[in-house]
Amino acid sequence: MSTALFHACIGILLCTMGLFAFIVHRHLLRRLLAFNVMGSGCFLLLVGLAQDGRGPDPVPQALVLTGIVVAVASTALALVIFRRWYRVSGEGQLPEDV
């Protein structure tokens, strides 16, 4: 197994773990963390798969950089909303039924 493919496999593993945690946990901070783990898995997958056997490729690097910026922004927004929600409701998680 090449290093690149190894990265990709780890990426998939991270994604799966993240998804599992995202579904299992109710607390919003945990879900946010799970989302970030998933995101990292995705980026690994993106870099890993693309570099398989074709030599260095700048495109995935550019993509991952963009992706990280987007993920940071999303996390920041989520944190802001979470803090407001916590202040208003005193709860760390969303009400169960809609």
Partner: peptide, 25 residues
Amino acid sequence: AMRYLLAALLGSLAYLIGVALLYGG
């Protein structure tokens, strides 16, 4: 908003996995 954000993020990640697979392939 929080519920919407979580759904949107999850959706984006699923989409991004697809992007990785397509670019890899």
